[in-house]
Nucleic acid binder design. Structure first.
Length: 419
DNA sequence: CTGACGGGCGCATAGAC
DNA sequence: GTCTATGCGCC
DNA sequence: GTCAG
């Protein structure tokens, strides 16, 4: 029994939402032409841009960094207000810019409207509004109008480990710059600035730059070497967009496992502080330290099951700090962990929906019959489906197997059965 | 119209006792 | 000092 | 912003 699921939060699971947010609905929205009136609203700014910039509009250029900053600020601003609905559109806008500019936007300082049209849906109203505004006014009025306090809040909220609440508190109590927070010693800005927050503030700029695939390849080789030297029986895999074969990644998402850990131990005590040196994670961590891949002063979190920190390629003074996320997985859950953390998000949503159709619950720990206990969905005891490979999970769901590199939406939408 | 928006986990830190 | 709650980020 | 109720 996957006992980790015992301690579920008290939040209720509303079936109404589960039903309407399931993927087939979203796919239908993507594939079926939207109603004309609705479309007019969405493409309003793209159309305005076309009219205002004239026949040569495709050759107009915007500054890559200005566009990125504006999209990120607006994304951050949106997350501070109750209405979070446009998140996917900002993410799509950012993805489009990175697709054009590569991992480091500084390498390609301007983008043409024509290029953007190729990678950014004209229905992405929020992103085209930003492009329109930059071309017309040279700035984004929506951001210029913000109060000084709100601008600081938006900037702070972009930083890793500074969420909604901390960002608002810091700005409300007078903090205006990253330096203010880095140099703060007590709670003069309302709350104490944590170690992780100071670290993220210091390396914020580097952390926002995407990682090119070749660099992850190098990390992969160095990690393999380091772990092999320390203990060849420890296995690992890099998941996420890298495993899907994409050209850039936002972080390095690693899973480690060892034959001695077969399943989650419900009675395992939660250790405070660093993992025991002889534990699996302890050995991994020490191997990473020894190889110069991690540094003890650049860690966000170091636990028995999860380690988060900044890492840079050793020996290269110009190498940027990259976020590396290591998590320990019992071998019994490994195929589910690999599947769940390789994604992409839409595929996982789709697979969970397919599982639900068969009255199964699928998550990163396993798959089993659904049983609802006071509005919470659990595995029915004894029904977990043990698999050795990811392919067996697709088999159980009666879907064709997707290799990791086929799991990006633009690929799998053409392979999996339509709805 | 209202009221919802992924769920559940691991970690660090704040707060309670 | 120990235990619990909260904030955060992750997929 | 969008959707179910």
């Amino acid at each position: 029994m996957n006992t980790g699921l015992r301690a579920l939060s008290t939040m209720t699971f509303r079936t109404t939402f589960a039903r309407r947010s399931c993927l087939p609905v979203r796919l239908a929205q993507r594939q079926v032409a939207t109603q004309p009136l609705f479309e007019t609203q969405k493409v309003k700014y793209w159309k305005q841009l076309k009219e205002e910039q004239g026949g040569d509009y495709k050759n107009r250029t915007v500054s890559t960094s200005q566009l990125l900053t504006a999209l990120r600020d607006l994304q951050s601003y949106r997350s501070l207000t109750p209405n979070k609905s446009t998140f996917p559109d900002y993410r799509a806008g950012l993805r489009a810019v990175f697709l054009l500019a590569g991992s480091d936007p500084a390498a390609r300082p301007t983008l043409t409207v024509g290029d953007l049209e190729n990678v950014l849906s004209t229905e992405n109203g929020v992103s085209w509004r930003v492009i329109h505004d930059i071309l017309k006014y040279g700035l984004v009025p929506q951001l210029e109008e913000l109060t000084e306090e709100m601008r600081a809040t938006v900037a702070f909220n972009r930083v890793h480990a500074i969420g909604n609440i901390y960002a608002k508190t810091f700005a409300k109590n007078g903090a205006r710059t990253f330096e203010d927070l880095i140099n703060s010693t007590g709670d003069e800005y309302g709350k104490k600035v944590s170690k992780a927050q100071k670290l993220a503030l210091k390396y914020h700029h580097e952390m926002e730059i995407m990682i090119p695939r070749q660099e992850v390849d190098k990390f992969d080789m160095l990690i393999k070497d380091a772990l092999n030297k320390a203990d060849p029986t420890i296995k690992y895999e890099i998941m996420g967009s890298y495993r899907r074969g994409e050209e850039t990644s936002s972080d390095i998402d690693m899973v480690v496992w060892h034959d001695s850990l077969k399943r989650r131990d419900p009675d395992a005590k939660v250790r405070k502080g660093n993992p025991a040196p002889d534990s699996i994670m302890g050995r991994v961590l020490n191997a990473m330290f020894s190889a110069g891949l991690f540094s003890s002063d650049k860690m966000f979190a170091t636990g028995e099951k999860k380690v988060w920190g900044l890492s840079r390629l050793p020996g290269d003074p110009k190498a940027l700090h990259r976020q590396v996320d290591v998590r320990l997985c019992p071998t019994e859950s490994l195929p589910y962990m690999l599947l769940g953390n390789t994604g992409d998000n839409d595929l996982m949503r789709f697979l969970r929906y397919k599982a639900e159709e068969k009255d199964l619950l699928l998550n990163e720990y396993g798959m089993g019959q659904r049983v609802s206990i006071s509005n919470q969905v659990h595995f029915k005891p004894g029904t977990e489906i043990i698999v050795q490979t990811e392919k067996e999970i697709f088999d159980k769901l009666e879907l064709p197997y997707l290799e990791p590199h086929q799991r990006s939406y633009k690929v799998w939408k053409n392979i999996l059965p339509r709805y």
